[in-house]
Simulated assay, not measured.
Amino acid sequence: MSAITISTGTMTGAAAATRLRLTARGRRVLATLAALPAVVALSVAMISGGSALATRADGAPSGAFDTVTVQAGDSLWAIAERVAPAADPRDVVAAFSRLNGLDAGLVSAGQELAIPAEYAD
């Protein structure tokens, strides 16, 4: 009979497995690289988000609104009574203010105001 020898399988020297060790600097670099796609995506979203704002010139087709030009001495109340004589002027003034972005409800001569659809002819 022949003798069988069994090896324990231990490695010595250069053949031993090395373990990966990250220094503090390496962890910072790895964290930065991992966060970079999120930062880029957020930056692109913030920059392109401003283009979603609608303006009357860009958002509405030409001729979509009837307009009225403010004459000297006109007020929103007078325009509301002239445009929609059967409606409550308070409701018409509120609709004019919302549609035209008038914060204080003040208008000046020569200004063009869009007429709300429910009061247009």
Rank of each mutant, 00 (worst) to 15 (best):
V39G: 11
A84G: 02
L106P: 05
R56C: 12
D121H: 12
V44R: 05
T23L: 03
A72P: 07
Q111I: 01
A57M: 02
A120H: 09
G101F: 11
I4V: 15
V39F: 15
L42N: 02
G26Q: 08
A16N: 13
D88T: 00
A14I: 13
V29C: 00
M11I: 10
A80P: 08
D66A: 01
T18H: 13
G49H: 04
D88F: 03
A45G: 14
V40I: 15
R56D: 09
I47R: 15
G9M: 11
N100Q: 03
D74N: 08
T5R: 14
A45P: 12
R98V: 15
A45I: 02
D91T: 10
G101M: 09
L53A: 14
A84V: 05
D88S: 02
M11H: 11
P85V: 05
M46V: 10
L102K: 05
R56A: 13
V29W: 05
A38I: 08
A17F: 15
R82S: 04
L36S: 04
A14G: 07
G73H: 07
G26R: 09
N100P: 00
R19K: 01
G101R: 12
L106K: 06
L33D: 08
A94L: 06
R98A: 08
A95V: 04
V70P: 14
M11L: 15
G50N: 13
P85G: 04
L36P: 02
G59K: 08
R56K: 02
T55M: 01
